[in-house]
């Protein structure tokens, strides 16, 4: 186990030794600061609750977290093939499965680091500039929920659900990166999935066929379920159902990724 952590440490090194990574963190930090400062000091601004500012920023910037992670994920396997370093990586006393797992874990840790940065910074900056006080009902209404929970728990749940969607998209990107050994394709397809997804979802939701319930796309925005207890996306499509569908797709995507990576002839 200790040795396996060394593999993860190596993969982390490959991520954090690149300037690109720090530019991503930089962009995220600057955007949070800029949005909050502008909202606070622009003429006519300055009131409003820190919670709703945090929500607005999360809404805008969590996509950023997903995009950045997709970029890193797309590169992690395909990049090794492009540079040829995959040959040196695979001739170590480690199974291919474990090497791939170490990569996957490092990508997920990166996603978590970005999301945590957004959460902590969003909370901190807005608490400082706007304060997190106010009547609870009002705040929850502004956040768009009928649930009776604390705003902090609500934000945590929101991040949790967003993170599940992120995992799905990033895992797709990881799969494309592994199967096609092309980072560009992985980025392109998964972002199309992310961006085009909501439009296609809206169209699909109009359709009254049962099979629509089982499409991956319509389950990618789980935050809808936070609106109220017992919310149904479509008739009979509950949170549990969505999670079940996502889990099934997840297992499938992971299986394909690992299978292809294990069987692949490395001839770069």
């Amino acid at each position: 186990m200790f040795d396996f952590l060394q593999l993860v440490a190596n993969e982390n090194l490959k991520i954090y030794r690149r300037i690109r990574t720090w530019i991503m963190f930089g962009i995220l930090v600057i955007l949070v600061l800029a949005i909050s400062l502008i909202a606070r000091y622009m003429p006519g601004g300055g009131d409003g609750s820190g919670w709703s500012m945090m929500m607005t920023e999360t809404f805008l910037l969590f996509i950023m977290v997903t995009i950045f992670t997709v970029v890193v994920s797309a590169e992690t396997v395909a990049g090794e093939f492009t540079s040829g370093t995959i040959k040196l990586l695979l001739i170590r006393p480690w199974s291919r499965s474990k090497i791939l797992l170490s990569k996957y874990i490092s990508v997920m840790l990166f996603a978590f680091a970005l999301a945590a940065t957004l959460f902590v910074l969003g909370f901190g900056v807005n608490a400082l500039l706007f304060g997190m006080g106010g009547a609870r009902e009002e705040i929850l209404a502004a956040l768009g929920t009928n649930r009776d929970i604390s705003p902090f728990s609500y934000m945590l749940a929101y991040y949790g659900f967003e993170f599940i969607s992120l995992i799905m998209i990033v895992t797709v990107s990881f799969m494309i990166s592994t199967v096609f050994r092309s980072g560009g394709l992985a980025i392109g397809l998964s972002l199309f999935f992310l961006m085009g997804g909501s439009v296609v979802t809206m169209l699909l939701m109009q359709l009254d066929y049962a099979w629509v319930d089982y499409l991956l796309l319509i389950h990618l925005d789980l935050t809808n379920y936070l609106i109220e207890p017992g919310f149904e996306l479509r008739d009979g499509v509950t949170l549990g159902f969505s999670l079940g569908v996502l889990a099934a797709y997840y297992v499938l995507i992971i299986a394909v990724t690992w299978l292809v990576f294990n069987k692949r002839d490395v001839a770069t």
């Binding site: 540079s83 040829g84 040959k87 040196l88 001739i91 170590r92 006393p93």
Partner: peptide
């Protein structure tokens, strides 16, 4: 593979 050391074609390393 534990006791094997190898270079296969060009020795590509992490350039960064």
């Amino acid at each position: 593979i534990r006791h094997v050391g190898a270079i296969v074609e060009n020795p590509e390393m992490y350039k960064y």
